[in-house]
Simulated scan of single mutants.
Amino acid sequence: MTNLDATQGGPCIVFRDAAVARGGRTIWQHGDFTIPRGSVTAIVGTNGTGKTTMMKAELGLIPLAHGSIDVLGEPAGRANRRIGYVPQIYASDVDSSLTALQSALLGLTGTRFGIHPVTRAQKAKAMQALEFAGIADKARHRLSDLSGGQRQRVAIAQALVADPELLMLDEPLANLDLASQRAVVQLLARLNRDLGMTIQVVAHDLNMLLPILTGAVYLLDGHPHYAAMDRVLDSDLLTHLYGTRVQVVTTPQGDMFVTPGLGDDDAADVHTADEIAGLHRHDAADDTTHGTTHGRTLR
């Protein structure tokens, strides 16, 4: 994997009064913001607000109704060779009879796989990507024999094999158990910290990603906005965003998480901050990655 200099080349993604319409209906409009290189950004919002649509617009897969989007200094779609993309349901987009190594190689060979010979250098590159993703020991295993978390890491390896400057993932934690979610988040942390890779994630639930996020694009009232996480983690903003009362809780250990708020009339068993801290605490000996972002500790 190649180390990237996040300070070179200007911003990563620039929206200029961008709007998308589908079937005569405006999905979102007046997108006007800049996402810096070297950031880890979530696209958040309720279902149907256009989170995946935004990522596809950035990839140039959906035309804009108005305005422009530049990605890595080029109009949307022109720099896709420098972008790694992991779709929402990876297993449905690739033959599950392929091995993990064959799947990773698709990131280099694409539709030519099986027609043109694969070089020794390409195999070495694919194995390097699998190794970085922590799944090299399953290189000869078929996707159909792997767990959901293992398949997700193969998908990330496929996206990494061509040394992208920007990694884009659509709901990478969906349908994964907590251990698999944590492994994927730790992998993303390593990519950002060790390689300087810019990462963008479509996310429904922020909690597992909070330790690594630097900012978020939030789709609110039909308009996309970008802000640093210390501004996004606001109870009033998140309550408006999700249409239900939301609380941002900080534990005594400095961990932050987002939880549905409870009204005075709600009868529920509410944990104290100390109890919640215990639920979120992990033993350092079990971890392979440690990092801190804006006071939130990746454990």
Rank of each mutant, 00 (worst) to 15 (best):
V201P: 08
N175G: 05
A159M: 05
Q152Y: 01
A179F: 07
R151P: 00
L160Y: 09
P211Q: 11
G148Q: 13
V154W: 00
P172Y: 08
Q158R: 15
A133K: 00
G134C: 04
R151K: 09
L143K: 03
L178A: 07
G215T: 13
I135S: 00
E165V: 08
L167P: 04
Q152C: 07
L173M: 13
L160N: 10
E165H: 15
A189S: 13
N175P: 03
R153H: 11
G215M: 13
R190Y: 04
D163C: 06
A216Y: 09
L166T: 10
V154G: 00
V201L: 11
M168Y: 08
P172K: 08
S144T: 12
S147Q: 08
M197K: 04
H223K: 15
N207F: 14
L220T: 07
L210P: 01
S147I: 01
T198S: 12
D170F: 02
G148C: 06
R142S: 12
L219N: 05
M208A: 15
R142T: 14
L210K: 01
L146A: 13
V201C: 09
S147G: 06
L206D: 04
F132H: 09
G196R: 04
A155S: 10
S147D: 12
L191G: 04
L187D: 02
L220A: 08
S147E: 10
L176G: 09
L210F: 06
